[in-house]
Design a protein around this nucleic acid. Structure first.
Lengths: 146, 146
DNA sequence: ATAAAATAGTTTCACTTGAAACTAAAAATA
DNA sequence: TATTTTTAGTTTCAAGTGAAACTATTTTAT
């Protein structure tokens, strides 16, 4: 078996390169991590979410989300508000600063993705999306069996 | 922008899930890490390689490779031999134990990959390979510009 | 209503990580 | 040849990581 031809290896190498590449756009310029970017992007799509909701949508574990919320709040990019239904939770939203930040970073992230995808045809992009989605479901199915 | 539709995010989530899933096969059963698996697989394909060569082929950084070599040697899965051309380097190969291990783990890794891919058609698999390869070259191209 | 189980989120702890500094050897240059 | 630069590999250090234990609250079951 050649490691090169092994899908888990290929995915890992590509994903790491892409993450590292795109992280440059927001780490070096704005000093935010991938975790922070994910949370900001999610809150930018929809505000007033709890850590639990963000944990699910970001696919990160709750420890990581908890730390990310703390750091984003310290840097004044998000604010919290008591959650009337559940006193354990809080609802977070972007501050004006957080909104400004995400609106500056987002176009760069989108441009990076666009440059990445311009090597593929429209059909290939669509087919790739289908494959990734199918693989995602499949890996869930496989791992929950174990 | 929806995070869900963002390729770097999709790749990261899928890659992490796949890595975590497959790692179970060899972590829980044989207590070897992904780094160790990669080196063993590479040495199984071709013995007498230096850390430098393995660094390139495994796409891991040299610190990680250095530590992986040390741990594999401590557990007696690989052995080293002085390198006549360059006294800084050594050539590594699998021991009998290392060979036995990789030959036990490899079929499981291949079976995992096969199960993963069985959700895709032959054409899709081929197209996916093309896309991953193209994206790989593209990300190299993009990041070396920066 | 009360006890038990589950859940949201945080903290602790032991482990992993990679950048930077380092050592030793090789290659390039003067 | 002597000096400088580069390279192979290791160590150090500071930061990041997640499993497990924890607190506080909510839900479920009795």
């Amino acid at each position: 078996m050649e490691l090169n031809k092994f899908l888990p290896y290929q995915l890992s190498v590509l994903s790491n390169k892409v993450s590292a590449g795109i992280a440059k756009y927001y780490r070096q310029q704005y000093n935010i991590s991938v975790s922070q970017w994910r949370v900001l992007a999610l809150l930018s799509d929809k505000g007033n979410q709890t850590a639990k909701e963000l944990t699910i949508k970001s696919q990160m574990d709750k420890v990581r989300v908890s730390r990310t919320m703390k750091s984003l709040e310290e840097r004044n990019f998000i604010s919290q508000q008591a959650c009337q239904k559940d006193k354990r939770a809080r609802r977070y939203k972007l501050t004006k600063e957080g909104d400004a930040l995400i609106n500056e970073v987002k176009p760069k992230a989108i441009a990076f993705e666009k440059r990445l995808l311009e090597t593929l045809s429209t059909n290939q992009v669509e087919e790739l999306q289908n494959c990734l989605q199918a693989l995602n479901s499949q890996v869930d199915k496989i791992t929950e069996e174990i």
